[in-house]
Design a protein around this nucleic acid. Sequence first.
DNA 1: CACCCCTCAA
Length: 584
Amino acid sequence: MQSVLIAAEESHILRILNSSFQTLDSIKDRISHIFANFFCSKYFSIDLIDTRYRGIDEVKTSYNQNQCELSENGRRQSEPSDGDEGQCSGAVFNVLDTMLKDSLDRLKTMRQSISWDAIGRECCDFEVNYKRDITIIRALCLEGKLGVALSLWYMMIQKSVIPDIITHNYLINGFCKTGNLDKAEWLVKEMLFRGPPPNCATYNTLIKGYCLQKDIERALNLFSTMANSGIGPNRVTCNIIVHALCKKGLLEDARKLLTEILGDTYPKDTSNLITSTILMDGSFKNGDINLALTYLDGIFCGGIPLDTVFYNVAIHGFCLIGDISTAYKYVCEMFKRGFLPDIFSYNTLIGALCKEGRTTEACYIYNVMSRMGVSPDQITYKMIIQGLCFHGDVIKANLFLHAMLDDSVVPQPLIWNVIIDGYGRCGNMQKALSIREQMAAFGVMPNTFTYNALIHSQIKSGNVVEAHSLKKEMVLNGSFPDLVTYNLLLGASCNLGNFHSVLQIYDEIVRGGYYPDIITYTELLKYYCIQGYTEKAEDLLEKLQTLNLQVDHVPFLILMKKYCKMRELDKTFELYQKWLLRMS
DNA sequence: CACCCCTCAA
């Protein structure tokens, strides 16, 4: 603001000087015979541009000097000439003099008032704007609003203000997390082009992005080429790569890579807790329990400080192998060592307990976590509600749904669907429909799963017509039937022996571009059996085994049952042998 | 700003 005023004042003065010179120029000829030579030689020596750089006092002194000399000469010279000329030029000079003097004074005052302090504030303004802008970009990136973040970035670039490296990394991270790898790559190219040059975190973010896309090839490629850009991979890079390899089940490759990079000391070197945790996690998930226990021992014996994630990985690992009591032991260990279990610890335990059918214990843990000040999240509720529904306690599951609503948490569609499905399975169609109403009242849109749950329960209740109209309704509401929908309807038609309907649905599956799965074919096979077309069923079973499908025991079982009923014991036995052969 | 843990339905 201040500098704008100064600039305005300066240009004002320049204008006055300019017009002064023009005026002077025009009257110069008329008064030249009096003092032109003297004036010109003195006054015009002050360069216009110079006034901006020379001390203003010097200009002023110089100007005043000129004025003095001018007026002295003017007075001296004006006497012999005709008075008009003298008076006229005197008046002009007086006016110009006043204007210039005022302006110069004003300029001087302003210059003085604008100390370095004020100029500093001006810089501060820039700083504040810059900080504000990059803070907004970062926040937008974290919220996933990358379009807006990028346009703000672009606005800064247009103003020749380059956001710092961290802000760039935030943007790249945002693009990677949302799967926009091409945008992330483009931004890295931008950084190489105009700066700031990418750092290790930039490349790590991009590598992580490739891993999220399951593109390990590219991740490894960047990993091996990033050194060419002058930035070597660090421990974080290794952890990202090792994690990706573990996820793919390539534990051996991960270990080889580490040995290659970190030397032969690995894995005896447990200095990096995170790397060891990743490897332990990978071993548990790949079913190599002995290896997992080796890593676990290694970490414990390493005497290094542990973290909550390490305990959670151990707890999860033991839950995974069904050893919940050891998992509990590690929870106790956490408490002993001063760590408090977090939402991950509790959810892991609850998930394992629900899977085991120990729902009462799961509900107990739910109470414990609430008392410990860890609020259950959607995952907690999802697992408990699903566990209760699966084990037939829909009523208790519904209580948890209400606990969520009481906590002002709007359940995800999944949770509503699980409850609807639960009521449908136990034949309570009314309640299933009322939950669907409630779901709509909370603004949660029904999806394909919702409709499939409803269709399933209608079919279970024998209302096939209702099931078909639900299929029509879902299309109207913007959801699309999937293979499960078709399999449900196909199964119903098969059981009813409705040949026309079976053909129609099968046709719709194929025309819709869906690939019939093993359940579709099993339903068809069941239809052939019910209708007594055992040869067709045999043919279908043969065909199934040539297709790239995971054929389970169900189609064999259906056909064997049919042969049993027909007292075709030879054929039953033949089929049984085929099945054994298939399984081996 | 970048690395490890919980879910993802019939």
